[in-house]
Amino acid sequence: MSVFADRTDAGRRLAATLSQLETVAEPVVCAIPAGGVPPGLEVARALQAPLRMAVVRKVQIPWNPEAGFGAVTWDGRVFLNRALMAGLGLSEAEVGAAVAKARKSVEERVEMFSGGRPEPGFSGRTTILVDDGLATGYTMLAAVEAVRAGSPREVIVAVPTGSLHAVEFIARKADLVVCPNIRTGRTFAVAQAYERWHDITDREVQELLIQARDMGLF
Protein backbone atom coordinates (compact mmCIF):
# COMPACT_ATOMS: atom_id res chain seq x y z
CA MET A 1 0.00 0.00 0.00
CA SER A 2 1.11 3.61 -0.69
CA VAL A 3 4.25 2.55 -2.54
CA PHE A 4 4.16 5.48 -4.98
CA ALA A 5 4.07 9.14 -4.04
CA ASP A 6 1.79 9.94 -6.98
CA ARG A 7 1.26 9.01 -10.63
CA THR A 8 4.34 10.92 -11.78
CA ASP A 9 6.56 9.03 -9.33
CA ALA A 10 4.98 5.78 -10.50
CA GLY A 11 5.67 6.69 -14.13
CA ARG A 12 9.34 7.34 -13.40
CA ARG A 13 9.66 3.92 -11.81
CA LEU A 14 7.97 2.29 -14.78
CA ALA A 15 10.28 4.20 -17.11
CA ALA A 16 13.36 2.97 -15.21
CA THR A 17 12.31 -0.64 -15.77
CA LEU A 18 11.29 -0.15 -19.40
CA SER A 19 14.57 1.63 -20.20
CA GLN A 20 16.45 -1.58 -19.32
CA LEU A 21 14.54 -3.75 -21.78
CA GLU A 22 16.49 -4.67 -24.90
CA THR A 23 13.32 -5.57 -26.82
CA VAL A 24 11.86 -2.05 -26.96
CA ALA A 25 12.30 -1.10 -30.63
CA GLU A 26 10.78 2.08 -32.10
CA PRO A 27 8.46 2.56 -29.13
CA VAL A 28 5.23 4.54 -29.15
CA VAL A 29 3.66 5.22 -25.76
CA CYS A 30 -0.13 5.13 -25.63
CA ALA A 31 -1.56 6.49 -22.38
CA ILE A 32 -5.12 5.75 -21.35
CA PRO A 33 -6.68 9.04 -20.18
CA ALA A 34 -7.13 10.37 -17.74
CA GLY A 35 -5.18 8.50 -15.05
CA GLY A 36 -2.65 6.98 -17.44
CA VAL A 37 -1.42 10.30 -18.80
CA PRO A 38 0.92 11.37 -15.93
CA PRO A 39 2.81 8.04 -15.88
CA GLY A 40 2.62 7.83 -19.66
CA LEU A 41 4.36 11.19 -20.03
CA GLU A 42 7.21 10.03 -17.80
CA VAL A 43 7.64 6.83 -19.83
CA ALA A 44 7.59 8.74 -23.12
CA ARG A 45 10.11 11.26 -21.75
CA ALA A 46 12.53 8.54 -20.63
CA LEU A 47 12.30 6.58 -23.86
CA GLN A 48 12.14 9.69 -26.07
CA ALA A 49 9.09 8.11 -27.68
CA PRO A 50 5.99 9.74 -29.13
CA LEU A 51 3.10 10.02 -26.67
CA ARG A 52 -0.39 9.34 -27.93
CA MET A 53 -3.79 8.99 -26.29
CA ALA A 54 -5.41 5.55 -26.20
CA VAL A 55 -8.93 6.68 -25.39
CA VAL A 56 -10.91 3.82 -23.86
CA ARG A 57 -14.10 4.21 -21.82
CA LYS A 58 -15.80 1.54 -19.81
CA VAL A 59 -19.41 0.64 -20.53
CA GLN A 60 -20.94 1.46 -17.18
CA ILE A 61 -23.35 -0.68 -15.20
CA PRO A 62 -26.50 1.52 -15.02
CA TRP A 63 -26.86 1.40 -11.24
CA ASN A 64 -23.10 1.46 -10.49
CA PRO A 65 -21.19 3.89 -12.75
CA GLU A 66 -17.89 3.04 -11.04
CA ALA A 67 -18.10 -0.49 -12.44
CA GLY A 68 -18.37 -1.64 -16.03
CA PHE A 69 -19.33 -4.64 -18.15
CA GLY A 70 -17.34 -3.71 -21.24
CA ALA A 71 -15.36 -1.00 -23.01
CA VAL A 72 -15.34 1.15 -26.15
CA THR A 73 -12.01 2.02 -27.80
CA TRP A 74 -10.75 5.03 -29.76
CA ASP A 75 -11.32 3.23 -33.08
CA GLY A 76 -14.98 2.49 -32.30
CA ARG A 77 -14.58 -1.13 -31.24
CA VAL A 78 -16.95 -2.39 -28.55
CA PHE A 79 -15.93 -5.15 -26.15
CA LEU A 80 -18.58 -6.64 -23.87
CA ASN A 81 -18.24 -9.09 -21.00
CA ARG A 82 -21.10 -11.38 -21.99
CA ALA A 83 -20.87 -13.56 -18.89
CA LEU A 84 -21.11 -10.53 -16.61
CA MET A 85 -23.97 -9.11 -18.66
CA ALA A 86 -25.92 -12.32 -18.21
CA GLY A 87 -25.21 -12.34 -14.48
CA LEU A 88 -26.41 -8.75 -14.15
CA GLY A 89 -29.60 -9.46 -16.05
CA LEU A 90 -29.22 -6.39 -18.26
CA SER A 91 -31.87 -5.77 -20.89
CA GLU A 92 -31.04 -5.07 -24.53
CA ALA A 93 -32.15 -1.48 -24.06
CA GLU A 94 -29.91 -1.00 -21.01
CA VAL A 95 -26.92 -2.41 -22.87
CA GLY A 96 -27.58 -0.23 -25.91
CA ALA A 97 -27.91 2.93 -23.81
CA ALA A 98 -24.72 2.20 -21.86
CA VAL A 99 -22.73 1.51 -25.05
CA ALA A 100 -24.03 4.70 -26.69
CA LYS A 101 -22.99 6.74 -23.64
CA ALA A 102 -19.49 5.24 -23.65
CA ARG A 103 -19.14 5.76 -27.41
CA LYS A 104 -20.11 9.43 -27.10
CA SER A 105 -17.58 9.92 -24.30
CA VAL A 106 -14.84 8.35 -26.43
CA GLU A 107 -15.65 10.58 -29.39
CA GLU A 108 -15.57 13.71 -27.19
CA ARG A 109 -12.26 12.74 -25.60
CA VAL A 110 -10.61 11.85 -28.90
CA GLU A 111 -11.56 15.30 -30.20
CA MET A 112 -10.38 16.99 -26.98
CA PHE A 113 -7.03 15.22 -26.64
CA SER A 114 -5.97 14.35 -30.18
CA GLY A 115 -4.62 17.83 -30.95
CA GLY A 116 -5.74 17.35 -34.52
CA ARG A 117 -3.16 14.61 -34.96
CA PRO A 118 -3.76 11.32 -36.77
CA GLU A 119 -3.87 8.01 -34.94
CA PRO A 120 -0.39 6.72 -34.09
CA GLY A 121 0.98 4.14 -36.47
CA PHE A 122 1.55 0.83 -34.68
CA SER A 123 2.83 -1.26 -37.58
CA GLY A 124 6.20 -2.78 -36.75
CA ARG A 125 6.59 -0.69 -33.60
CA THR A 126 6.71 -1.58 -29.92
CA THR A 127 3.49 -0.19 -28.47
CA ILE A 128 3.52 0.54 -24.74
CA LEU A 129 0.07 0.92 -23.19
CA VAL A 130 0.16 2.84 -19.92
CA ASP A 131 -2.50 3.30 -17.24
CA ASP A 132 -2.33 4.10 -13.54
CA GLY A 133 -3.41 0.59 -12.55
CA LEU A 134 -5.26 -2.62 -13.40
CA ALA A 135 -8.33 -3.48 -11.33
CA THR A 136 -10.25 -5.98 -13.49
CA GLY A 137 -8.13 -5.53 -16.61
CA TYR A 138 -11.10 -5.36 -18.97
CA THR A 139 -10.49 -1.79 -20.14
CA MET A 140 -6.85 -2.65 -20.84
CA LEU A 141 -7.94 -5.77 -22.70
CA ALA A 142 -9.95 -3.59 -25.08
CA ALA A 143 -6.93 -1.34 -25.61
CA VAL A 144 -4.64 -4.32 -26.31
CA GLU A 145 -7.07 -5.76 -28.86
CA ALA A 146 -7.44 -2.38 -30.60
CA VAL A 147 -3.66 -1.98 -30.83
CA ARG A 148 -3.22 -5.52 -32.16
CA ALA A 149 -5.34 -4.55 -35.17
CA GLY A 150 -2.54 -2.14 -36.15
CA SER A 151 0.06 -4.93 -36.50
CA PRO A 152 2.58 -3.74 -33.87
CA ARG A 153 5.93 -5.44 -33.37
CA GLU A 154 4.86 -6.19 -29.81
CA VAL A 155 2.46 -4.91 -27.17
CA ILE A 156 3.74 -4.05 -23.71
CA VAL A 157 1.33 -3.15 -20.92
CA ALA A 158 2.98 -0.94 -18.28
CA VAL A 159 1.08 -0.14 -15.09
CA PRO A 160 2.36 0.79 -11.62
CA THR A 161 -0.09 -1.41 -9.73
CA GLY A 162 -2.56 -4.20 -10.40
CA SER A 163 -4.51 -7.03 -8.87
CA LEU A 164 -2.94 -10.44 -9.36
CA HIS A 165 -6.05 -11.61 -11.22
CA ALA A 166 -5.95 -8.68 -13.67
CA VAL A 167 -2.21 -8.95 -14.28
CA GLU A 168 -2.49 -12.68 -15.04
CA PHE A 169 -5.48 -11.98 -17.31
CA ILE A 170 -3.65 -9.29 -19.32
CA ALA A 171 -0.42 -11.30 -19.41
CA ARG A 172 -2.26 -13.82 -21.59
CA LYS A 173 -3.10 -11.06 -24.07
CA ALA A 174 -0.03 -8.81 -24.15
CA ASP A 175 3.55 -9.76 -25.03
CA LEU A 176 4.80 -8.37 -21.73
CA VAL A 177 3.30 -6.83 -18.60
CA VAL A 178 5.39 -4.51 -16.43
CA CYS A 179 3.76 -4.04 -13.02
CA PRO A 180 5.95 -3.28 -9.99
CA ASN A 181 3.15 -3.52 -7.41
CA ILE A 182 0.98 -6.65 -7.67
CA ARG A 183 -1.50 -7.19 -4.86
CA THR A 184 -3.83 -9.95 -3.77
CA GLY A 185 -6.76 -9.96 -1.39
CA ARG A 186 -10.52 -9.88 -1.30
CA THR A 187 -10.70 -6.25 -2.41
CA PHE A 188 -8.48 -4.15 -4.64
CA ALA A 189 -8.35 -0.44 -5.38
CA VAL A 190 -5.80 1.24 -7.62
CA ALA A 191 -5.76 4.31 -5.35
CA GLN A 192 -4.37 2.29 -2.43
CA ALA A 193 -0.97 2.10 -4.13
CA TYR A 194 -0.59 5.90 -4.03
CA GLU A 195 0.14 8.29 -1.17
CA ARG A 196 -1.49 11.14 -3.08
CA TRP A 197 -4.49 10.33 -5.24
CA HIS A 198 -7.14 12.35 -7.03
CA ASP A 199 -9.18 12.01 -10.18
CA ILE A 200 -7.27 13.59 -13.06
CA THR A 201 -9.33 16.30 -14.75
CA ASP A 202 -9.51 16.97 -18.48
CA ARG A 203 -7.75 20.28 -17.86
CA GLU A 204 -4.84 18.49 -16.19
CA VAL A 205 -4.58 16.12 -19.15
CA GLN A 206 -4.45 19.05 -21.55
CA GLU A 207 -1.71 20.71 -19.47
CA LEU A 208 0.34 17.52 -19.54
CA LEU A 209 -0.08 17.29 -23.31
CA ILE A 210 1.23 20.85 -23.63
CA GLN A 211 4.32 19.71 -21.71
CA ALA A 212 4.67 16.73 -24.04
CA ARG A 213 4.33 19.00 -27.08
CA ASP A 214 7.02 21.33 -25.72
CA MET A 215 9.32 18.31 -25.41
CA GLY A 216 8.57 17.23 -28.97
CA LEU A 217 6.80 14.07 -27.85
CA PHE A 218 3.23 14.90 -28.86
Rank of each mutant, 00 (worst) to 15 (best):
Asp202Arg: 02
Asn81Ala: 12
Gln192Glu: 11
Ala143Ser: 13
Gly185Ala: 07
Arg7Tyr: 05
Glu94Phe: 08
Gly121His: 01
Arg13Trp: 01
Gly68Pro: 06
Cys179Asn: 09
Tyr138Leu: 10
Ala191Glu: 01
Arg77Leu: 15
Glu207Asn: 13
Gly36Ala: 05
Arg148Lys: 15
Leu129Ala: 02
Asn64Ala: 14
Arg186Thr: 13
Leu176Asn: 08
Trp74Thr: 01
Gln211Arg: 15
Arg82Lys: 14
Thr184Asp: 00
Gly185Lys: 09
Glu204Asn: 09
Glu154Leu: 12
Ser2Lys: 15
Gln206Met: 14
Pro152Arg: 02
Val3Trp: 01
Val3Gln: 11
Glu204Phe: 10
Trp197Pro: 00
Arg186Trp: 13
Leu90Trp: 06
Asn181Ala: 14
Ala174Trp: 01
Arg12Gly: 12
Ile156Phe: 05
Lys104Glu: 14
Gly35Phe: 05
Phe4Asp: 04
Glu168Phe: 05
Leu129Gly: 00
Arg117His: 10
Phe4Gln: 03
Pro160Ser: 04
Gly121Glu: 12
Ala191Thr: 08
Gly11Glu: 07
Arg172Thr: 14
Phe69Thr: 07
Ala135Ile: 04
Gly40Ser: 04
Ile182Lys: 09
Ala31Val: 11
Pro50Asn: 03
Leu164Asn: 08
Gln48Gly: 08
Ala83Ser: 15
Ala44Tyr: 02
Gly35Ile: 03
Leu208Thr: 10
Leu134Cys: 02
Val155Tyr: 00
Asp6His: 03
Ala212Glu: 07
Tyr194His: 06
Val144Met: 05
Ala166Asn: 07
Gly76Gln: 10
Phe69Cys: 01
Val178Asp: 04
Arg196Val: 13
Lys101Phe: 12
Ile32Val: 15
Leu164Asp: 06
Arg117Val: 06
Arg117Met: 08
Val157Gln: 03
Ala158Gln: 07
Leu209Arg: 01
Arg12Pro: 00
Phe4Met: 01
Leu141His: 14
Glu92Thr: 12
Thr23Tyr: 11
Gly35Thr: 01
Tyr138Cys: 02
Leu141Thr: 12
Gly115Tyr: 10
Leu14Val: 05
Gly115Asp: 11
Leu18His: 09
Ile170Trp: 08
Met140Arg: 00
Arg7Ser: 01
Gly124Met: 00
Pro33Ile: 09
Leu176Thr: 03
Arg45Val: 11
Asp175Arg: 06
Phe188Cys: 06
Pro118Cys: 04
Arg109Val: 03
Gly40Met: 00
Gly124Trp: 03
Ala49Asn: 02
Ala46Ile: 07
Val99Asn: 08
Thr17Ala: 14
Val110Glu: 12
Asn64Ile: 12
Gly35Trp: 02
Phe4Leu: 04
Ser105Pro: 00
Glu168His: 14
Ala100Trp: 04
Val55Trp: 06
Gln48Glu: 14
Ala25Tyr: 13
Leu51Asn: 02
Gly68Val: 10
Ala142Arg: 00
Val43Ser: 02
Val106Pro: 05
Leu164Ile: 11
Gly36Arg: 03
Val144Ile: 15
Lys104Cys: 08
Glu145Thr: 07
Leu217Arg: 05
Thr8Ile: 15
Leu14Pro: 04
Met85Ile: 15
